[in-house]
Nucleic acid binder design. Sequence first.
DNA 1: GTTCTCATGTCAACTATATTGACTTGAGAA
DNA 2: TTCTCAAGTCAATATAGTTGACATGAGAAC
Lengths: 155, 155
Amino acid sequence: MPKTSQAAGLHRASLAKLHDLDAALELMYYGWRGMTLEADDYLARQGLSRPHHRILYVVARRPDIAIGALIEILGISKQALNRPLNLLLERKLLTSKRSPEQHRSKLLRLTAAGHRIEQRASDHERKVMRQAFERAGASGTAAWMAVMEAIADNN
Amino acid sequence: MPKTSQAAGLHRASLAKLHDLDAALELMYYGWRGMTLEADDYLARQGLSRPHHRILYVVARRPDIAIGALIEILGISKQALNRPLNLLLERKLLTSKRSPEQHRSKLLRLTAAGHRIEQRASDHERKVMRQAFERAGASGTAAWMAVMEAIADNN
DNA sequence: GTTCTCATGTCAACTATATTGACTTGAGAA
DNA sequence: TTCTCAAGTCAATATAGTTGACATGAGAAC
């Protein structure tokens, strides 16, 4: 696990702008950093990191999800999922049980402790977003979401 | 180097929303992915990846930057910079020379080939942003930037 | 009832990106 | 001549991911 994460390169560096859209590229970069910084620090103090949070986040929103479906959503291989998932099971932040009828797949659920950590980590991120949206007002928030959807759906 | 990057977990996954701000968290995640996807594919075809692009991006905007200053801006350790930087020098995408007076530090510059790759990779990202901004109009763009600045500056 | 399929689990080897710590080198300054 | 400081290098470690190969165990098909 990483130490506490040095506030690294947070400058919003004073780089010359070669293109008018350079500011937008940098805002995406530093925006992602800004949103995840405190959450990552919190997770590191729990001995966890971003992949663990992604697992907790998805399972919280899809209780009784099977492992195959989780792999699909996370977009990583079974083997890559294995380690962080087992850590979460060992730490009893997740439980896995086979369903009575579909005995083939294992169903994942958060424990109370898992819910608590997922919530606190996500709360750090939501706090950042809430403050930004408060300053921007309802129309600014709607505009932000519209732009982000256009960017996200650029597949 | 990674292969071609499987379009992984691109679902904009249909997860139940536990909080009203969950959509915003997911938009940040998929937005970052959407912006960087094509650029990363292009870079992978050149045998490069995101850290190499970050180096090229910064040096393009700060010609004659010293290695220490670059480390500062990137927020990584000297040792972590070493490998990708040496690759870029070997490939002659960067040049390093000592300055006449300040002979202690090395000054980095892009070669023509380095400029070309930096530009093409960044162009993929700018293209995504430009399309999103065109749909959103000038006021939507301004609102997006204001929100992102608030998020980024949450340090 | 044996065989086929399929979800899951696990082992090994590899790559990439990062870290810290300990050192060297070489130039400039005191 | 010694001290400082930027840069370079080596080793060990952690994390996050990959592919390939193979085991297990349950359900379904024949």
